[in-house]
């Protein structure tokens, strides 16, 4: 059973009106921004369930837009994020779907990076500002971004995990949680590694080159 502490009750600071529909939504957009290496050129957002029906009134769309610009949930620019996105040349398109998803507060965000590559994520705002990322590029994942998180895209071949863990061990970085997901045998796969301490960009770069079957490392 979850143990509650002082700042669960006195906080967080956030932009209203709703921790799930506004703060959580901003965090989902922010994860997409980080996946896009802090530079979103274009984004397509689909809102489902309660996000689609009451999202406009809760500012869910503006919160996701703010996240896509890199703003955290307590940033007061959130209210004006549409204008700011336009100013910064970030094109965001919203769609509303009545398709049923596992969680009522779900968003699918497809971001196009500066280099033209696209990444698609599906995530839900599960209450109190907490989020769960459920899919990345069609692969099922499950993490909350409560810890520093590494996403490693690679081919499903022997030795890849060993190479990654080798680098982390060498840098004395403790793995709190880890999951490996593959589309099918020997095909594209993804490692989600949550660590106790943050992973510097130089370490991420070292992981990227540690094995030829790794093609991308994202720090969240």
């Amino acid at each position: 059973m979850k143990q509650f502490h002082l700042f669960d009750l006195i906080g967080p600071q956030m932009i209203g009106p709703s921790s799930s529909h506004t703060a959580g939504a901003a965090r989902l957009g922010n994860v997409a921004w980080r996946l896009a290496e802090h530079q979103v050129r274009k984004a397509y957002v689909t809102l489902y369930g309660s996000f689609a029906t009451t999202g406009a009134g809760h500012g869910t769309d503006r919160a996701i837009a703010a996240g896509l610009l890199g703003y955290p949930p307590e940033d007061e620019r959130l209210r004006d994020s549409f204008a700011l996105a336009k100013e910064q040349g970030c094109e965001i398109t919203f769609q509303y779907s009545d398709e049923k998803r596992r969680h009522p507060n779900t968003a699918k965000i497809t971001v196009e990076r500066k280099d033209g590559a696209t990444i698609e994520l599906v995530g839900a705002s599960i209450g109190g500002g907490s989020i769960e990322i459920q899919e990345i590029n069609g692969m099922e994942v499950s993490f909350g971004c409560d810890y520093p998180t590494l996403l490693i895209f690679h081919y499903d071949r022997p030795g890849v995990i060993h190479s990654v863990i080798g680098v982390l061990a060498e840098k004395n970085i403790n793995v709190a949680f880890m999951r490996v997901i593959r589309s099918s045998r020997h095909q594209r796969a993804c490692m989600v590694i949550e660590t106790d301490t943050s992973v510097e960009s130089a370490v991420a770069a070292q992981i990227r080159t540690a094995n030829p079957d790794i093609w991308e490392v994202c720090r969240l």
Binding site: L9, I10, Q13, M14, I15, G16, P17, R79
Partner: peptide, 9 residues
């Protein structure tokens, strides 16, 4: 109105 507050609780 999408202003800044502190959740309590």
């Amino acid at each position: 109105s999408m202003g800044k507050i502190v959740a309590a609780p």
